[in-house]
Amino acid sequence: MNLTTIRRACFLVILLILAGTSTAQESSLLWKISGNGLEKESYLFGTIHIICKEDFLMDERITSAFDQTEQLIMELDMSDPQLPAKMQQVSINPGMKNLQSELDESTAKALDEFLINSYGAGLAQLGILKPFVLSSMVLLKVLPCTEVESYEGFFTTRASASGKPIAGLETVDFQVGIFDQIPQKIQLEELGKLVTDDSSKQDLEKLMETYQSENVDAMYEVMNSSGMVADYRVLMLDDRNKSWVPKIEEAMQSKSVFVAVGAGHLGGEFGVIALLKKAGYTVLPIQ
């Protein structure tokens, strides 16, 4: 695997693994933000960071809302030309340590075979990547399609074409640092399940189907029933949402913005929707 391929893999997989979970009282991926002294309406959209091209959900309701706004805000500034290189740099284990020796023999063999068949390189080369990156690389190949689409990529291209400025709520270092706070043993256990348990493909297909239905409550049931995301929800979702809302509020004071973040960040007691409502804004679903 060459350097360009590794960079692209790191770029995509970080997005996928941070997609998160969601819950809300009403079903919609697009929400209008108004009131509380805002002169212009803004919009909040829940993405799933990687999806099969044929399942990509995009309609006039979404594009119209996007085109009405003056700035695009995402988890990361996807227009940063240095982003892939930055992702690669922080996705490698300290000292380029290879994780192959940390896996039991059967799991290491299964993962090695999967990576060789999928990427043309096995653990001898790719074992230097952090566990969450390897997990995400596996998930990318479990998708039931050969062509994938990215909402972040779509919005970035559309914003750049129209001269709409783009901003990020976080940095790559911060996002990767989230996984550095989760014990490596737990991450390796999750990785092992992906290559030894056939249910991972069915789970991912179910997630894609649920996302298309815009039923965010059902997405919560699919994603947050068990596993690492459920166990570390405060770290991976709640705390981040709390840090995002003041930044979103500041941006909305002077302009109309389109906020596109993982659908998992929309719902729940500490979701972006609830936090914006608590701050005094009117947040309504656009169906």
Rank of each mutant, 00 (worst) to 15 (best):
M1V: 13
M1I: 14
L3E: 12
A9C: 02
V13Y: 03
T21Y: 13
S22A: 11
Q25G: 01
E26C: 02
L29R: 09
L30K: 06
K32H: 03
S42Y: 00
F45A: 11
T47C: 11
C52V: 01
K53W: 06
T63S: 06
S64R: 09
T69C: 14
D77Y: 02
Q82M: 07
L83R: 00
P84L: 02
Q88H: 14
V90D: 06
I92P: 06
G95H: 08
M96E: 14
Q100P: 00
L103A: 11
D104Y: 07
E105F: 11
A108N: 04
N117L: 10
L123I: 12
A124W: 01
L126I: 10
L126P: 07
I128Q: 10
V133C: 12
S136R: 13
M137V: 08
L139V: 05
V142Q: 15
V142S: 09
S150N: 08
G153D: 13
A161T: 12
P165H: 05
I166F: 05
I166A: 01
A167S: 15
D173S: 14
F174E: 11
G177S: 08
F179R: 01
P183I: 00
I186T: 08
Q187N: 14
L188M: 14
E190V: 14
K193T: 05
L194Q: 03
V195H: 11
E205M: 15
E205R: 15
K206G: 14
L207K: 01
M208R: 13
E214W: 07
V216F: 14
M219G: 15
Y220K: 13
V222F: 04
R240C: 07
S243Y: 03
K247Q: 14
K255N: 07
S256E: 01
G264I: 04
H265G: 13
L275Q: 15
L275D: 03
K277C: 10
K277D: 09
G280P: 08
Y281W: 03
V283R: 06
L284R: 01
P285K: 00
I286G: 07
I286A: 09
